[in-house]
């Protein structure tokens, strides 16, 4: 995800509200990976595609079909889930490493289609081009109205606040509700079956568990979570383009899950906030060695740091900050 340049500083509350919103979106996104990878052991490297599919489906339905947002958004989630099932059918019987490669290929196919089917997606320029060149398309009218209402309601209770704060409240309310829901599911016997599959598929199927069906459910449900993240992403940035959905975003999701600890739902927001601060915060570090670098170079430096964190975690603390070593499964 590329954040637009902000004319703010590290001290500004609206900057931190922005970091908070992005961390919330990443929390929802990574929660889906936690279900697929953390609990079920599925190495899904095409997670970002589900985000892209829901965001595009919604934007296209609103702009081209003039569907109301409250219908287009659920449709986005549904289409993402259908794609989850479609990609799962041929790939979920594959070994972990083959699954990783085929899913990343799937994600890239989605991005290529978004990039090249200008008529459908607006092409490389993004959703602003959904009505063709000359007119700028927008899909978030309904959403802004809703966000305004939330802001108004909150202001009657808490006093003045910005529209960023309203967005922050909405995103985190949804994020926490989804964490609770996921926690209910994985604490149920359903989650026990997922964990057994993660460790040993043959053991699970020898006890009568339909391993394939459970994997499919985990993939589709995780896709739905990515889809929700995709909707919020679309609302937050008011337009988006295919480059927002490159494989890097999926890898960021993995770093959050691993940083937090696998098979730990409540750790995901902690991982997302830490990641958000590292990622957004380094933009504003005004001391050496950061001051030696220009802003483009700092972007590279940030990604180098992120890569080093992933390597360091895998080498020294593969269970993450809040995970339990005894429960960690990494083949």
């Amino acid at each position: 995800m590329t954040a637009p340049l902000l004319a703010t500083t590290i001290a500004s509350p609206s900057f931190w509200a922005f970091v908070g919103v992005v961390a919330g979106i990443y929390t929802i996104f990574a929660l889906g990976l936690q279900l697929q990878f953390g609990f079920t052991g599925l190495l899904n490297f095409g997670h970002v595609a589900f985000m892209a599919i829901s965001a595009y489906t919604m934007a296209i339905l609103i702009v081209k079909v003039e569907a109301p947002m409250w219908a287009a958004a659920p449709a986005g989630i549904a289409v993402a889930m259908v794609f989850g099932l479609l990609i799962g059918l041929p790939t979920l019987r594959l070994r972990a490493d083959y699954l990783a490669i085929t899913t990343i290929a799937f994600g890239e196919i989605v991005r290529y289609v978004a990039l090249n089917q200008d008529g459908l997606t607006g092409g490389p320029i993004g959703t602003i081009n959904l009505k063709g060149s000359g007119t700028s398309a927008s899909y978030n009218g309904d959403w802004l109205a809703f966000q305004g209402k939330v802001q108004h309601a909150l202001e009657t209770v808490f006093g003045d606040m910005g529209k960023d704060t309203a967005m922050l409240a909405i995103v985190w309310t949804v994020a926490i509700a989804l964490i609770v829901a996921m926690q209910v599911l994985v604490k149920a016997p359903w989650g026990r079956v997922l964990r057994s599959i993660r460790e040993d598929e043959d053991a699970a199927s020898s006890l009568g568990k339909n391993v394939f069906a459970y994997k499919l459910q985990a993939l589709a449900l995780g896709a739905a979570l990515a889809a929700v993240a995709g909707l919020f992403f679309a609302f937050q940035f008011s337009f988006f383009s295919p480059q927002d959905f490159d494989p890097l975003t999926t890898f960021f999701g993995y770093i959050i899950v691993i940083l937090a600890g696998t098979a730990r739902n409540w750790a995901v927001p902690v991982g997302a906030v830490i990641f958000g601060v590292i990622f957004a915060g380094t933009r504003f570090f005004e001391f050496p060695p950061f001051t030696y670098f220009g802003s483009a170079d700092r972007a590279y430096l940030r990604l180098i740091v992120v890569g080093l964190i992933l390597i360091g975690l895998m080498a020294f603390r593969p269970q993450g900050l809040l995970g339990k070593r005894e429960e960690m499964v990494l083949e």
Binding site: L43, A96, Y254, Y300, L301, I304, G307, L308, M314
Partner: peptide
Amino acid sequence: AKVVALLLVSIGLALVLRHVIFLVWGA
């Protein structure tokens, strides 16, 4: 470290190498 752990490390390494190249030679 086994297959999946090494695979995740290689993603970290890819990020490091690619952006070191960006840092040195630019885009």
